[in-house]
Write a protein that binds this DNA or RNA. Sequence first.
DNA 1: ACGCGATGTATCGATTCGATGTAACGACAC
DNA 2: GTGTCGTTACATCGAATCGATACATCGCGT
Lengths: 223, 223
Amino acid sequence: MIDLAILGLLTEQELHGYELKKRLGELLSSRASVSFGSLYPALARLEAQGAVKAVEERTSVPSAPMSGSLVGELAAFRARVRESGLVKGTGRGKKVYGITEHGRERLVELLSDPDVTDDRAFTLRVAFAPHLPDAARLELFERRRTELLRRRDDLRRRESDPGRAGRTHSYLRALLERDAENLAHDLAWLDRLIEAERSADHNGADRSIPVPAPQAHLQEETP
Amino acid sequence: MIDLAILGLLTEQELHGYELKKRLGELLSSRASVSFGSLYPALARLEAQGAVKAVEERTSVPSAPMSGSLVGELAAFRARVRESGLVKGTGRGKKVYGITEHGRERLVELLSDPDVTDDRAFTLRVAFAPHLPDAARLELFERRRTELLRRRDDLRRRESDPGRAGRTHSYLRALLERDAENLAHDLAWLDRLIEAERSADHNGADRSIPVPAPQAHLQEETP
DNA sequence: ACGCGATGTATCGATTCGATGTAACGACAC
DNA sequence: GTGTCGTTACATCGAATCGATACATCGCGT
């Protein structure tokens, strides 16, 4: 859900569309960002719902000395044209969005919804985890863990399926192997995260330091 | 692209929509399959393009003894209603699709297109790699390798970005770490795949055995 | 005899993507 | 100063896809 991403980013800072997309690109690891074709409609949607609101609209920086009257005339003409709505492109004039109280509520709602098991959504939720209370955060991690375990069982069932054995060539086996390894790796990472979370909760919990140690893990097996 | 998936599966065996979806679910690892909302339109599209064609349409199994004349009346009535186009659902009557010569050409085209760097697409391509000549297959793997290296450099640049240092909390660092590890892991897997491919090409190349050894790797570093 | 879950085809509205258009701005060249 | 190029920025379009839902039949268990 793109709504989650927008609200999460706007909670931390007021931003305009273009900047929003850039930040999302960093968060979601370069690829797998969102396109303008979904971002702008989503912003309009959220604004209509009252979850965000336009804060500022700079049509022209007043400090810039325009020197000539002709330039001023031109700008005024263009403003009139734009106002008339006869032209598509609106040119420069960044719309800065901010989150509302309602938007903040919606964010917590989206962060906690247990029905979404999407990978992208989980990444976003971790990124915005500081906005969740400790209990909800741990619950989120545990739910993810259950989901990953479910997938691993799925995979194992498929690996030891006598039916497909015949029409399975080496490349398919390689893919299966990759999936299994990736899954195991993800589980190990998640377990480290949970462990760090637990030990941070025990004492006073400095939420800004606990980077999980890169080698620790507590992965039980079901052989 | 869903076209790739459909054509690839139909090359190996004639199938109907529902079965197609099931196979795709297995191939793309349970989640990340496709929905009927894209599958059926895609099949119609491909049929219009002449890449696939409906082979068989079983409307009713003739061996089933319907015993009563009333049942026959009812079925006839329903057939009439369906024919009139006033009703949406068309009920049972599986449409089995097969690939055409044109479809086979299109498949090779889709398997080789160098502009698609999508993860899903790569997985599908590996799954259907046996339909590619040796050279094209190796090229595909090498292109993937380049793409993964590009992403790794992207990630490293982001890791050592002094600008973001301030507003980066522990969860963001954990996410970044996860991405880096996943990427390294994927690269190692790919290198094993390439290695297996190369050694298979040297001799007679039994394309059905060479599963890459789980521990080998030849990952050069850019420290 | 009957209901219920699996198998099947199909469509709808909403969302998202990818491409494209428009435009202002900064910077540098000349 | 005035081209014109690259970056920033907003916006929309058509196509692809999703998730939900409808409709219909088969087969099974009870």
